[in-house]
């Protein structure tokens, strides 16, 4: 029985990056890694251990799911497992972004006050 996630709970950086990478469409493991690297301007480099460990817990929490197994036309002819965001995952991502906006607003207010 998969555990239901609590969308309000803060997400780990790895989970947030994976959710962001999948927010524009389904991707396979390598595709997620490349998207995370691009999204973070090369600052976040995730290895397979971190990526698939996080994805395992995200699948348990129904944040993501396997969508399909097919060939990536831009790569070799091997079939790859694709992953996609679920409704719960999208809600969790939006909640996390709202939380981040709140934190940024507080931080900016403090910094402006401190100047």
């Amino acid at each position: 029985m998969p555990k239901k996630s609590t969308p309000q709970a803060p997400l780990t950086p790895a989970v947030l990056h994976i959710l962001l990478a999948l927010s524009t469409g389904e991707r396979h493991g390598y595709g997620i890694m490349k998207q995370v690297e691009a999204d973070s301007q090369g600052k976040v480099k995730m290895g397979p251990g971190t990526l698939y460990g996080s994805m395992s817990r995200m699948m348990e929490a129904t944040l993501i799911r396997e969508s399909d197994k097919r060939v990536d036309p831009e790569m070799d002819d091997e079939r790859r497992i694709y992953y996609e965001l679920t409704g719960v995952g999208r809600v969790a991502l939006e909640a996390e972004l709202t939380r981040y906006r709140g934190v940024v607003a507080v931080a900016e207010g403090r910094l402006a006050h401190g100047r």
Partner: peptide, 12 residues
């Protein structure tokens, strides 16, 4: 995940 991890390793 083993299959996906092996593929990802190969791609990397």
């Amino acid at each position: 995940f083993a299959e996906g991890m092996a593929q990802t390793f190969h791609d990397l």
